[in-house]
Design a protein around this nucleic acid. Sequence first.
DNA 1: CGCATTTAGTCAGGGCACTGAGTATTTCAG
DNA 2: CTGAAATACTCAGTGCCCTGACTAAATGCG
Lengths: 160, 160
Amino acid sequence: MAAVDLSTHPGHLARRLQQAHHLLWNTMVSEEITSPQFAVLNVLVAEPGLDQRTVGERVGLDRSTIAEVISRLIRRGLLDKVRDPQDGRRFLLRLTGDGLRTHRKLAVRTARMNQVFLAPLDADEQTVFLDLIRRVADAAEGLRHPAGSPTGPRRPRRPR
Amino acid sequence: MAAVDLSTHPGHLARRLQQAHHLLWNTMVSEEITSPQFAVLNVLVAEPGLDQRTVGERVGLDRSTIAEVISRLIRRGLLDKVRDPQDGRRFLLRLTGDGLRTHRKLAVRTARMNQVFLAPLDADEQTVFLDLIRRVADAAEGLRHPAGSPTGPRRPRRPR
DNA sequence: CGCATTTAGTCAGGGCACTGAGTATTTCAG
DNA sequence: CTGAAATACTCAGTGCCCTGACTAAATGCG
């Protein structure tokens, strides 16, 4: 019987943590707008007019996934997408009035939800918790793009 | 500009953590067998002959998701599913020889992967990390089934 | 016994997440 | 200027994850 204790496996715990968060989000924040969708709105509040790829980079989603999320937000009327006149490959993204209102409303609820979510930990532990997750996630992501500029403007590339 | 710093949001960090883990799993453990699939194999190593629902409960998956995961494992020939002669609703699950061998192989690699994943933290921090995640996830799950037995044998229920 | 309730599993539908292949546009070396 | 390479995006395919509606089997009260 070589079975392993899953509760010592960070991957398994990470999945359970995310599921727990998803559940709480649905009950305390919104059943319509998901957490990744909110993350996209949030990026565009700070930086209107970004293109899809960059938004995906900011929130940590690949090009395929960010395209789906964005199409749902557009369908809901929270976002607009227009061709970049300077670069015909890009689509520039901008919140609609509705998108901005939705973001404001959800931001409040999200803050409340985070408090409830972290309530089992005291203030010090909460800080440590976030810090440890960040360090592990950053390190693992770093294994993918070993060197390279940490997400620069991404304009020219030496063509060999 | 009421944008929020996502790096202080546990939900966002949890998602990034899981993505990072997924990536590392694919490169260090297996591209065929996923982490949830391994979790199912692992449960059945310790407790052969469980039914679907209970397996799902052990690994933290609802009945729909566990059904999909199990059907993939059966398709790969790692699992067998037979009707419970005692209870015609249930399917009893059991590893095949291939399933057992696969579990043994992956268990080794998983242990190595966990070390790499947690390498950015020192030994004490690793313990704290796992403990904090567990506490937050457990508490949030507890919000769903407010009272009730914590996953007992689930036999009789008082019928009002 | 007989029917309502509970329970195990399936199915449809929606959303997140990745890879790999393909299209259109831009950029740059020659 | 022209063709190769890079870039932004789309599409197909796979897998995880949930809810809600449904089917079939078991259970238990009356």
